[in-house]
Nucleic acid binder design. Sequence first.
RNA 1: GUGGGUGUGGCCUAAGGGUUAAGGCACCUGGUUGUGGCCCAGGAGAUUGUGGGUUCGAAUCCCACCACUCACCCCA
Length: 423
Amino acid sequence: MPRYQRPTGTLDVLPEDQPYWDYVLTRARRLAELCGFERIDVPVFEVTELFARGVGEGTDIVDKEMYSFQDKGGHSITLRPEFTAGVIRAYIENGMQVRTQPVKLYTYGPIFRYERPQAGRFRQHTQFNVEILGEQDPLADLEVMLLAWDLYAGLGFQELAFQLNSTGCPQCKPGYVEVLRAYYVAHADRICDDCRRRLERSPLRVLDCKAEVCQPVIAEAPHIMDYLCTECEAHFARLREYLDLLGRRYVINHRLVRGLDYYTKTVFEVWAAGIGAQSAVCGGGRYDGLAELLGGPPTPGVGFGSGLERIVMAMKYFGVQVPPLPSPTVFVAHLGPQAGPEAVRLAYALRGAEIGTWIAFGQRGLKSQLREASKRGVRYAVILGEQELVSGMAIVRDMESGEQTQVPVAGVVEWVRERTHAA
RNA sequence: GUGGGUGUGGCCUAAGGGUUAAGGCACCUGGUUGUGGCCCAGGAGAUUGUGGGUUCGAAUCCCACCACUCACCCCA
């Protein structure tokens, strides 16, 4: 028989890691709901066309990272490589533009990108995602950013700061791109081959180039800040004003250009330590033209996606403690064939009273059963044997003190409830 | 897609080419008849990632593939 392994770049989240996931997700949901975000779930796959148009032909994600396949009906289907396109599709398809605007939505689930895995990067990862649809006020940009900030701050991240930039809009971006292109053409002898290619397909990406040779050219490159139209400039200024007022640290990063084509105006990332060469735990921005591009009514939007795996990695790096997940407090041990049915009855009575309970399987010695109880970490072990059946009194053993109490079998549920619910 | 590192029981690690691959953790069972954690004893568990090759002999050397890992690219 072959030994099966998980596919490259996928992860098993084992029970011992679940407390981290649960903690993060619970907090994220809570924060989102406090701001009025409502949960939405969209399919894990969509027609390929949606992502090709939404994310943009020519982006790395669309060109080489999508999990696409033909289904039995001959349709090209793609496992979602990001959330926004699907959420916008759902907004349009369900006529959500008639709801009170803006519509605030959050979701989370698996995202798929065919990449070479490394520290903090996977082929299937999990994102927590929020979107505010139908609002152009920079206050909306602020709100999603603060949500991310508060989440990480609450999780114990240190030295938080936003990486912030504006990518302009259809009014001003093309003008800047021309200026940038002209600048690069003038310095064509001092840039790398990749950048020569980027200049054709996605010119803004040259600013993101890591090649040694390109650094001096990038450093001297014109900033989009100086080419924003008055609307984009005002929008960005308002956002900064809010952030300053609230004391949320950010650094203007002229080189921050994101890998998805749909962004307009605000783009931002949050970086964290402890996740290898990958530093972004969160990336997002505004995408005012996307809904229209996907065939819907003109609908401005802002949002972000945040990688759960990276958040958990950063938490471990920062040494953040998380509370354990609930586990049973009682273990029912039983001796002899007569005691079995009574033990089952008792276990289900306890469970029926919302008291987590393990019951011993098989016919084993008491030693073995208590050993298991000890390892399960329960607070009480109930012992039911022939003697207890005769007397009608079960033995309840406090696993920490070793103290044993005789309790009427019919009163065990109440006895345990008093002791556990009080504390 | 490119480059580096690694690959021994569930986990960690040993075995400088030579007898039945060793140890620790974890797991199971016992240490008298119905009592956990500590201690003691015992047990189960590995075709040494896979396939070739070199050799009288390979976990040890060589090649290929696979996987993991780190980095580039890109991003969450």
